[in-house]
Design a protein around this nucleic acid. Sequence first.
DNA 1: ACCGAAATGTTAGCGACGCTTACATTATCA
DNA 2: TGATAATGTAAGCGTCGCTAACATTTCGGT
Lengths: 198, 198
Amino acid sequence: MTNATYHHGNLRLECVRAAMELLEESGETALSLRAVARRVGVSPAAPYRHYADREALVSAVAAVGYQELAERLVAAHPSPSTPEQLASVAVAYVQFALERPALFRIMFAEVCDRDNDERVAATTAVSAYLRAIVERSFPEADTDSMATAIWAVVHGLAFLHLDGKLEGQTPAAVTGTVTGAIGGLLSATTAGPSLAPR
Amino acid sequence: MTNATYHHGNLRLECVRAAMELLEESGETALSLRAVARRVGVSPAAPYRHYADREALVSAVAAVGYQELAERLVAAHPSPSTPEQLASVAVAYVQFALERPALFRIMFAEVCDRDNDERVAATTAVSAYLRAIVERSFPEADTDSMATAIWAVVHGLAFLHLDGKLEGQTPAAVTGTVTGAIGGLLSATTAGPSLAPR
DNA sequence: ACCGAAATGTTAGCGACGCTTACATTATCA
DNA sequence: TGATAATGTAAGCGTCGCTAACATTTCGGT
């Protein structure tokens, strides 16, 4: 076989693996191409054979972040249709953000790179999952508006918690906050919005 | 008088002014202490007399960002009490984020620095403003939950727009989206949430 | 089986950055 | 007026992103 000391093998994948580890261990400021190279055991310039720049690597990391978020959501409930089930998915979303803050920030810190196929696929997957829920749960509502509104609340709660703008970081408190907000939003549409939604 | 060439005068304020300019002109990656020092016309180490580190300067910039956001909100409506008025404030919030994306990101990119007095004052001001609105508009609702929910939708919409996750970046489209979501949320509480908000 | 091309890795180095230390100048006030 | 604090400069360390030039390995066509 080969010596296996010069050509690493699949450096591409190892890079995002190492990057993810760095992110979890030391936060996003520690995520440098050089640190990734060190961890993988390769020269500082090697990652540039696989990623055009730091941004590209970050984008790849964000893509797997989206995949893991999606898995987390379907794990909370595969196909929610009641408000309670949907709320449990929302709670999962926010808790994902709180458990892996650095990754979550990476995922949303920049405008989506449309050139990263994995990434657009992953984010559209999340979006589609959400739209499917809305269509199933609220066939009479405007799917776009409803999906947007729900995503916004959940996303906003995640960020406000992340930034310490809200009190109560414990899982129980988070669950309460998210459940309350989602519950309110959901009962709204059945009653009909008081403002014309465009 | 003094020579005015060695001692700058009020370098502290000039630094955040220059930092704000850099932010607006070239985005947040261009916001470095050295660049600020260059723009102010001072040595690279001078800012460290007034700010412990880059983080401290960024925090100061974020503080004035909060003040300007607060001005923007009261300009939209000084004391909203109807859903329409509240929606107009929400629209102002999101448009502030879209007009000054780098500043907005700075403001929410990190957990709030509790040691920065200006900053905690500014952010609590926004929070208090919001709570006052909620108490005035919905005296029968749980103020905390309601304020949190509303802030979350608006904040979420701002970030989703910022990150390109939503279509329609035009002011009109944004207005429609935000108005629709807020309208939905508001009609909810009068109907009563279907989930117990803790 | 060979050999040239493509892929993938290394080395060295440039410029910028955050930050620190030592030193210079100016302002303040007993 | 003169010590001292405040505020600036100069020089330098380590890290980073990125590039260019070179080395090694893999692979495809003959």
